[in-house]
Design a protein around this nucleic acid. Sequence first.
RNA 1: GGCCACGUGGCGGAAUGGUUACGCAGAGGAUUGCAAAUCCUUAAAUCCCAGUUCGAUUCUGGGCGUGGCCUCCA
Length: 448
Amino acid sequence: MNNLQLTNSLTRKKEIFKPNNLEKISLYACGPTVYDNPHVGNARTLVVFDVLYRVLNALFNSNVTYVRNITDVDDKIIEASQNNKKDINEITNEVIKIFHENCKSLNCLKPTVEPKATEHIKEMIEMTSSLIKKGFAYENKGHVYFAVSSFKDYGKLSNKNLDELKVGSRVEISDLKKNPMDFVLWKPSKEKDPGWESPWGRGRPGWHLECSAMSEKYLGKNLDIHGGGLDLIFPHHENEIAQSCCNNNTKKFANYWVHNGFVTINKEKMSKSLGNIITISDAVKKYSGQAVRLALLSAHYSQPLDWNDELLKNQENVINKWYNLYSPEKNNVSEVDEILLDDLNTPGYIAKIHQLYNDASKGNAEKKIKFNQACKLIGLFSISKKDWESSKKSKISVSESYITKKIEERIEAKNKGDFLLADKIRDELLSKGILIEDQKEKTIWKVK
RNA sequence: GGCCACGUGGCGGAAUGGUUACGCAGAGGAUUGCAAAUCCUUAAAUCCCAGUUCGAUUCUGGGCGUGGCCUCCA
């Protein structure tokens, strides 16, 4: 068995992944809307699809095009601009910069393309015109809506039917819409808000449209894999399917839909409204990026993942331990373990890495290579052991010369047999986050 | 109300129609002045009730519980 299997949200079943074209595997993951600092929930999506990207690259000889968009025009960005009295571009540029730093600290590979919505307005206007022309959309007072009733498969991905959605009636009512479920493709912009000239007047695209337009531009009309967080299934991905399939006259937009579960805090979804957000920047300040990454992979991607200090400390210790057997060779293995191929079972794979570590620590050289390869395949061991140690040292407040001096004092005390003093020095350093270890010939220190 | 997911040792978390991984914490040991780190050994779990089966934690039905989606969300 050398097939990748993925749980397809379309069928809610595990399926063997069969690409359209072995020369160009297409992967599209929904990236951030850049109105606020990304949080560890966003990080989970980043890391999960990064692992998928790495696995696909290994399996298909790096013939993978990975597109991850940046949505930089959106009502929430306008809102943030008003609330913070900042220019729109200032906000989006700042958040994009932070986002990129976050990606780097989590050791996520760069996607092949990272298109921005604002740079694809032309494509979105064209798509909107085309949908009107084909009878799937209609214009009313500068607004263009997609008519959901024109697409018979609407609701298939999210397993909803239109009648039930109407009963739920939590949708925005507008006199301009023919049907409350219709969603906006284009809407007018106030003078001070971002806007572009269009056949329907100055305005801006609705959410959902950018992913349809940009995925088509870079990956074509039928994608292999499209993914994102669970909460994007409805309405975002459902609407993307409607737009793309109607415009392209295709049966399928993406063949495999992959959705990751939420990061929770105290078993509740991490979300702005609950105020339980932890930003990626804060997380990687407190813990190493690798520990955060390992934590995010410690549950299966489809399951919820509860974020807490115990989990993160645990992962930090694991990474520290694993660095004992770090070796610097590059990983260019094209084989992927069956455990990982089985729907990206990262927790199972991590368990296997633990076993490889245990075998390797007994001096098995072959297992040591395998251990290192396994770590690198899921994006760990991003930096050398030396850099790992110095990155930890950069987080402490006391100087190295002070530590060295204290260690010398302690050795002297020990030689005199004054263990009381020796222990006092050790405790004092520990209170500053410095851990003393007496090895056979020398005393070393580490950052706790 | 509709739809969906989940319930495994103290905790986290895989897998499986028959012997239930792995990590943390716990216990014992090696090591140490004592520790730490590391290494060795080790105890410990499948929500409840039916059904199918020689055998169910796994499959089916019901119940209870938790979370999510149905409005923006990763």
